[in-house]
Amino acid sequence: MTNSSKVDSSDKSDSAPLATEKLGEEKTERREIKGGIPYTVAPGVLKKALESIIVAERPDKFGANYMATILKLTGGAAKAVPPFLKKMQFIGADGTPTLLYSRFKTDGGRSQAAYDGLKNAFGELFRRNEYIHRSDENGVKDTIVEITGLKKNDPIVRLMYLSFDAVRSFVSGEVSKQPEMIKQEPEFEGAIEKTETKKPGADLGIGLSYQINIVLPETENIAVFNAIFKSLRDNLLR
């Protein structure tokens, strides 16, 4: 079962080509599904992958070998996981985990990261209702029907909802509706280093200038970065 918004291993584009469905032994006519809403035919595998990401070691690249060996996800259904994570912006085009992926692994950042990933993948739903992540099943399906024009009992509407709900299940409590734009982990180590240099003529009372080298620690805790930059703003940048 394929269509323009189905997430499969090809991950070629977000365009809306015509799609063919097969229900039992009977093929239906080709049709175009509007809205670009992503879905996978195995939402349970997507949810299992997200659960496994939380406890597994973060890879340099998220690919088939990592899924099969570390996450224990194999078969055709598993092939749809990386393209879906790309739509969530959990991994980059080359499979490299983003900062959003790292935040999802943390207890404190998981809910916000899941919300941001949900909004990245299902942006059209959020454009119709900014509180769609709080809607019940009937409300989400109604929005999907409104966007796609499909019948509410269409199997694809169900798959779109279940894919949405697989990600939404990790959102809890209050979340910010303005996600941070940083996508990649900083490639810095160590601590903040401050050096003082004098400009030519400083001995004549011309003045001083400061060169501040910021070397950020490698951490998945966004609170550390927030504290560092807040301290810089409060103490040095005034």
Score class of each variant (00 low, 15 high):
E146W: 01
G24R: 07
E26S: 11
M88G: 03
R103Y: 13
N221G: 02
I54Y: 11
L208D: 15
E220K: 14
K6C: 11
I37W: 01
K141P: 08
E124A: 10
P97M: 05
S4F: 07
V7R: 11
K152N: 13
K199C: 06
K199T: 14
L85T: 00
S102V: 12
P83M: 02
G190C: 06
A191E: 13
L85G: 00
F104Q: 04
N65G: 08
G173R: 00
G36P: 02
I182G: 03
G149C: 01
A49T: 03
K183E: 14
K22G: 13
K34L: 08
L159G: 01
A202W: 06
D107Q: 04
F126H: 13
F188E: 10
K199F: 07
S52R: 15
M67A: 06
L71S: 10
I91S: 06
D60R: 03
T98A: 07
E26F: 13
L46V: 04
T148F: 03
D107S: 10
L118H: 02
Y66I: 05
A114E: 00
T219G: 05
E130K: 10
A227F: 07
Y115K: 00
I53K: 06
R238G: 10
E29A: 12
A113H: 03
L150K: 02
S111E: 02
P186T: 07
K119T: 13
S9M: 04
A227Y: 04
E185K: 11
Q112A: 08
T74G: 07
L150P: 01
K105E: 12
D154I: 07
S135Q: 15
S15G: 06
S172N: 12
E220M: 12
L159H: 08
T28S: 14
F170E: 00
G201M: 05
F126M: 11
K6M: 13
Q211H: 15
Y161D: 09
Q184R: 11
T96H: 02
K12W: 07
A78G: 08
S52D: 12
A80L: 01
K105N: 09
E218Y: 15
A166G: 03
P200F: 06
K48D: 13
G123E: 09
E32A: 15
Q211M: 14
T96L: 01
Q89A: 12
L73S: 10
R30A: 15
A77T: 06
P200E: 11
L159M: 10
S15C: 04
F104V: 06
D60E: 05
I212C: 08
K119E: 12
